[in-house]
Design a protein around this nucleic acid. Structure first.
Lengths: 189, 189
DNA sequence: CTGATTTGCCTAAAGGTTTTAGGCAAATGC
DNA sequence: GCATTTGCCTAAAACCTTTAGGCAAATCAG
């Protein structure tokens, strides 16, 4: 009987692809086994359980996004950097909706602290070096930026914006303009 | 054999409570039947299927939030209204995390158009009457506000903000200050 | 009030996902 | 070449979803 050559990595990768195709919450150990033309139980030598699979996909997505973000930020500063980072998230979500949804999975604190999530926070903070903010406003701004990026991408992806009126691309551009203006002119407490 | 007195409404209500207790994606027709001490199949006279249940919970949450928002906005304008509306979302999410998650469920266009979702958009737009924005900037601003509200609430609830540093309440207040400043000083294209 | 009808919850059953336990054969190591 | 390890398999139990058909309680008609 020939072996399928399963590994945790291949399963995670395939799980991510599956997520993009059918949606993250349709990702199932069974579906994954089917995709490898293998019996379900076989996967349990490589994955602890279903939650383990989902967590691994989430971590993969966080890594991929962080890598893209690091690339995009190289050599940029100020509004240029802001736009680049924002577009990384938006583009990633459009290319990989299932992975993006996975990245939203609630991780336990241990796992979260060891994930690429911290790189994301660092990069957002790095952007703010191009603006004139000191603590604690810098942290407030990091959180606000994170909220806008995630909120916008999530609403746009979920069809939360009416498909009429101005183009969502236009809104995105104008929102980034607005954020840039806001950061350059952050109100005093 | 005494009857349990199930109705679609009671099931939806109980489903919402269940969601708040165990998380929206743990809401299951089986669990709901257990809660009413009734056999699973009995629920299928009142619910089309599992998806139907989830959709109804989502619609309930959207209604409840819209009602609270309408209440909060009555008699307020400008920053006062902005803060009130923002707090409705944040408070609702904290009190009813399961319902809030439900409200994020992707609805098919038909259902969405008939939902309280449209009231939410209208109310956000109403807030902007206190600021000096004309179309298409008004729509851009509506979308930006929606993004911030949803993004912030979602990240805070999911533990996305490090539990250290400045208090998240402080960030929330300062973010609303910042949005107010931004709306009063919306950048020209 | 009684008989007919409707309605509500039940039993039965099939199909799918999760997860554990134990087995056999392929790959690897000496 | 033989022993060990590793990888995928079969078997099986537990749980969720959904449909079909049945009986009794509630409702309605005369």
């Amino acid at each position: 009987m020939a072996r399928a050559g399963l590994t945790t990595e291949r399963l995670t990768q395939a799980g991510a692809e599956l997520a993009d195709e059918v949606g993250f919450d349709q990702v199932t150990v069974s579906a994954l086994a089917r995709r490898f033309d293998v019996k379900v139980a076989s996967l349990y030598s490589h994955l602890k359980n279903s939650q383990d699979l989902k967590t691994r996909i989430a971590l993969l997505a966080l890594e991929e996004m962080a890598d893209r973000a690091a690339d995009a930020l190289a050599g940029r500063a100020g509004k240029d950097a802001l736009t680049a980072l924002a577009n990384v998230y938006r583009d990633y979500a459009r290319e990989h909706p299932g992975r993006y949804a996975a990245a939203q999975l609630r991780l336990d604190p241990q796992t979260a602290a060891a994930s690429a999530g911290v790189r994301h926070a660092q990069m957002t903070r790095a952007i703010l070096r191009g603006y004139d903010l000191t603590e604690p406003d810098q942290t407030h701004a990091v959180r606000l930026l994170g909220s806008v990026f995630h909120g916008y991408v999530s609403l746009e992806l979920g069809g939360g914006f009416s498909h009429s009126a101005p183009d969502t691309q236009e809104t995105w551009t104008r929102s980034l303009d607005a954020l840039d203006a806001l950061l350059r002119n952050w109100p005093a407490p």
